[in-house]
Each structure stands twice: as C-alpha cells, then as structure tokens.
Amino acid sequence: MRYAYYMGCVVPSRLNQYDLAVRNVLKELGVELVDLEDAGCCGTVITRSVDAKTNLVMSTRILALAENKNLNLLVTCPGCYESLKEAQETFHNNTSFKEEVNTILKKLDGLTYSGEVEVKHLIHVLYEDLGLKNIRGKIKRSLKGLRVAAHYGCHILRPSNKLKSDNPENPKILDELIEVTEAKSIYWMLKLWCCGSPILAIDRDLSLSLTCAKLKSAKDSEADCIVVICPSCQLQFDFMQNEASRISGERYDIPVILYPQLLGLSIGLKPEEVGLHLNKTGIDKFLETLKTIWGEEHGL
C-alpha cells in the first residue's frame, strides 16, 4: 500500500507529533508514504471565504501533483480533505472549471489533471484499505477501561453529499477505530459539535465558548481523554485548553490525543515514538491512566 502523503500547513508548522505518529504507525502497518513535494497550502476555508474559486484551484493543483506521482492521496487534516474533495467534485461536474484550472496548471507546473486521484483521510486508509481485522491483529496492549470522547471534526463529515465519508449524524469510523484498541468510545452530548477553531482569529471569545462547551460535555461524560483526527481541533482542545478554562471559570485538565498516537501506543510504540511529550494538557495524568490499565507490565 502506497500513498502520496500531503501534510498540509498546520502539521509541520505546529504539530510535528501528528506527523511522527502517522509515519511510525503506518510503518508498523506496512503502509508506504511518498512525501508530496512543493505542494503548499490547499487554500482551505480561509481562501474559500474570500474567493471560492481560488480554493478550488489551489486544491486541484495538489490533486494534480499526486496524479503526477501516480498515487492516491493520503491527508491527515480534515480541512484539506474537505477542500480536496470539493475540488475533485467541481472538477468532474464543471467543464469550464476543468479547462480553466488546467490552463493555469499547465502554465505553472506543466501539468494537466485528468481527475483520477482518490482522496483519503488517514482514518479511511485505516478503516477501509487496511481494515479493522488487520489492525486488530497488530494490537499488543489493550486499552480496555479507557473512556474516550471521540471528536470527528466538522470537515471529515460535512457536507456529506460531497464527502461521502460517514453518516454525518451518527458516524462510526472513528468510534470503531477507537474500539479496536478495546478502549470505550463513550456517548457525549456535544460529540458532533464544532471545536470553534475556524473563528479563533476572528472572535477569540466566541470561538473558545464552543471549545468550553465541548470540554464540559466531555468532562460531564467522564472522558479520560478526547481523541481527535484534525490538527486544528487538536490545537484548539489541547493548546487552548488553559485559556478556555480561564474564560469558563471551570478548570479543565483533559488530555487530548491524536488518533494515531492512541493507536500507536496500543500497537506497542513508546510514548516518545508517537510524540506524546509534545502534547500540552494532562499528559502525565494520561500516562498514569495507562499505567493503571496496563498494570505492572506497563513498560512506561
């Protein structure tokens, strides 16, 4: 199994632990990654807010770079995922866009995109291409007893008519990927809500009010940790948790773990091999929980 690996902007600039965990986990699972060079930003909702076409062109260029390598695309950011799928859909349904974008790509990179690339988020590669059965066979350390609040993030699910990723009102992929480690994916009321990240720069308090609401919901449901698959959600829940605690008047200390970190730990990787030391909130507490679960043999 081989994919063009597109890292996006947020991971290399803020969240190297995501990259580390992805590479180490996929290596263990026999998936080969080919770094996509010279890709730049996908445009995401930032450029889409200013000019939707710009976003589509930027994203189509990334699809074309992957096609040029003859590989399907693996992304780890739902923001990129949504953008690239939106571009893919427009490319297929809008002939004038197709011509326009190819004219630009030809001039810029000497490339023409034909529309063949499949875009997958990490969770799709794990769930659909590798499969739960395969992954279950690799689990060395059960996480039985760990209560996990799964946070999907908006742009992995919605708009579902374009993404066709999972059931937008009752998704299961991430929950099942969590439960394959024997951890429990718990019910929490605000599970499907936005983390607030997209409006952080525009209105900090309003953005953090959403973060607080979610943290409270996770705490009320007695989650040991929140598990995410989006770099921006990770930054919001983990790096902003202190500030969110301050504005809500309630203290939160909830570990926020990237899914590949969780999976990595349960297939036997060490915490530093999944970059756990680079997470900010409640990591000591999280390691204590793991020690309790794993008992004498914890090896931490």
């Binding site: 010279d38 076409k53 062109v57 990179d109």
Partner: peptide
C-alpha cells in the same frame, strides 16, 4: 530531533503566481 525528514519545500513564488492568475 524527532528523526523526521525535512518538511517538504514549497515554491512560494509559484503559489503567488497562481494566486495572481486566479485573481485572488
């Protein structure tokens, strides 16, 4: 330090040209 490869380079000038081309 983490043993990761260098972040893939980006030709910013090329991206800028694309943004100019598309009217952004």
């Amino acid at each position: 330090k983490l043993g990761l490869p260098k972040a893939p380079p980006v030709d910013a000038e090329k991206i800028r040209k694309m943004l100019e081309e598309v009217g952004f």
